[in-house]
Design a binder for these strands. Structure first.
Lengths: 334, 334
DNA sequence: CTGTTAGCGCATTCAA
DNA sequence: TTGAATGCGCTAACAG
């Protein structure tokens, strides 16, 4: 029931070809005619149908945004939302629509996400919030669908990714502490079956070694990225090595837990023990003392992913690994 | 280049009608034929094109999700993301696709969001993150496009909304304090040109009056919803009325600021002063003492909006105001 | 039960 | 410079 190209043609007294040409920037339409057509179109409130256009052009100019399980990532919502904003804004600028997609609904509809994309003729997909051990992971890697992963280090012929340099990020965090003359720096890491934990450990070690400081295994303790875990880990660390003057945490949540314990234990922050976290969660700026941390450029991860995808789509660029630098946020806890 | 219905028909040795019927659950296809067709389709990896389907059916089965300015809502991202998850999941269950949309990109493309929706033949829109004074507001209200607002109390012939009962929410919060035998309860409200502030004030007053307690203007102070503001407001309140035994805040951030001040001032929470916030932000559960608060059912707001929209679309239901109950989250600060 | 035909709204040859 | 005709992949009358 919306007005079609035919309505406009009729009302303007021309053929549909002319209307089409007038709208699509062809040079072969008389100035007079063109003006009249455009005016009539406006009067009639005509809007060309993207679906008809997609059908004949055989391209939809739209991509999917696969957000794994929406609720499987408690605490990382702020992260996902910022990335989402970056993705959408850049993609919109580049002329692409984005359709939401989640594994939850795919699962319940018993159709693979590849099928979902095929049905809608989506030209590519950006995948985020997915863990490496997700069964859908394999599908993403194998599929011939052009895709870009966020924090998903998988590189294949049609599959690039964007992530943050965790080694470098951790290194920055520790170097910051070293620059404040700390020498006995504890490290509360996450569990080792997370890729980021391994990288952040590397960064911690690298930073120390760059300064000629030996890595002391007693200073390193593993936890689970969460508040309670960080609290317990800090207690354990302090018991084993009461002489630490600074602690680097692989997540802000653990750092918050750690600060809680330190304060209970009567240690002043940062005078007695300096604290640096990782993630740059919102809370960090509100606690006392405000948390120094190393964060990811979330919005920028989104725009980068968008640009990479469009590059692959339009200019047949090779998929690549885009590793963004982490950014140090220095506040009062260090 | 994807496989079409014709390819399947040819390969299965039937007409395209038969394939179409086999796929769309018609009863008039022989069991044998049907099985063969489906098998062939699977072998060929055939997926019916939604765009062709949309064109002929004159309906896209997809709706837009308008997220005002993505970055204009610092601090409310977790809120928007949860709502988004609810919207998407429910909409997917109901068979609708959701396309992202923001006023930022609309503005830069110089096209109204109505035009955007028309071009894509979107059947409806859900609007969120928009403030009442946004110029796009008018467009939403006027447009003949079926739409549902989140926290946007606008009701018109094709425009319903979902929001949380702020009067009731505040009432619950204060009643909770009353049940703990508090009688001198301070109220740190947000600025009065926000709708929610007015409602929450009503709730505060109602709760007191229900108990026969007179509202004491000295106990009410206004601030800006943020941490610093809450801190200052609390200081001012305590100075004026040092005898308060509890404070109700119109936002969690202000409550956090307030707790900071109370602790500095040597008041124990909740023994000397009990604290209740509003919003249920994530941080609340991690601070010490954990913050009692009244929150919105974010995910449910999303699912409700999705259901309302689909109801209006499929069953021509009248737009309505869906007001969800707030939910009390009782923790250690009260 | 199955096949033939027309047409959804548009872009694009090819003629005029 | 403009117009008539064809087809993108699919559904829906209608015929057989």
């Amino acid at each position: 029931m919306p007005v079609t190209i035919r309505d406009v043609a009729r009302a303007a007294g021309v053929s549909i070809t002319t209307v089409s040409h007038a709208f699509n920037g062809y040079e072969d339409v008389g100035d007079e005619t063109k003006k009249r057509v455009l005016q009539v179109a406006k009067d009639l409130n005509y809007r060309p149908s993207r679906v008809a256009r997609s059908l004949v052009l055989q391209q939809t100019q739209s991509v999917g945004l696969l957000i794994s399980d929406f609720n499987a990532n408690p605490g990382s919502n702020h992260f996902l939302f910022d990335v989402l904003a970056g993705i959408h804004n850049r993609l919109a600028e580049l002329g692409y629509d984005v359709t939401l997609l989640s594994t939850t609904t795919a699962r319940q509809q018993l159709i693979s996400y590849i099928d979902f994309c095929t049905e809608r003729r989506l030209e590519g997909v950006i995948v985020m919030g997915m863990r490496m051990d997700d069964p859908y992971m394999q599908e993403v890697a194998d599929a011939s669908l052009v895709s870009v992963g966020i924090d998903l280090p998988i590189l294949s012929r049609h599959c690039g990714y964007v992530m943050t340099d965790n080694v470098g990020g951790a290194k920055q965090g520790v170097k910051h502490l070293l620059s404040k003359n700390h020498r006995r720096i504890g490290f509360v890491n996450g569990h080792l079956h997370a890729v980021v934990s391994i990288d952040r450990l590397r960064g911690y070690e690298d930073a120390l070694q760059d300064e000629g400081i030996a890595v002391d295994p007693e200073l390193i303790v593993h936890s689970d990225f969460l508040v309670e875990g960080g609290e317990k880990a800090t207690a354990a660390l302090l018991e084993r090595r009461p002489d630490v003057t600074a602690i680097f945490y692989a997540s802000d949540l653990m750092a918050l837990g750690g600060m809680r314990h330190l304060q209970k234990a009567g240690r002043r922050i940062p005078e007695d023990v300096a604290v640096v976290g990782y993630d740059n969660v919102d809370v960090g700026q509100w606690v006392v003392p405000a948390l120094t941390t190393v964060g990811q450029k979330r919005y920028e991860m989104g725009t980068s992913a968008a640009e990479m995808l469009v590059g692959m789509l339009q200019r047949k660029e090779e998929p690549r690994a885009c590793v963004l630098q982490a950014e140090m946020v220095i506040r009062q806890s260090s």
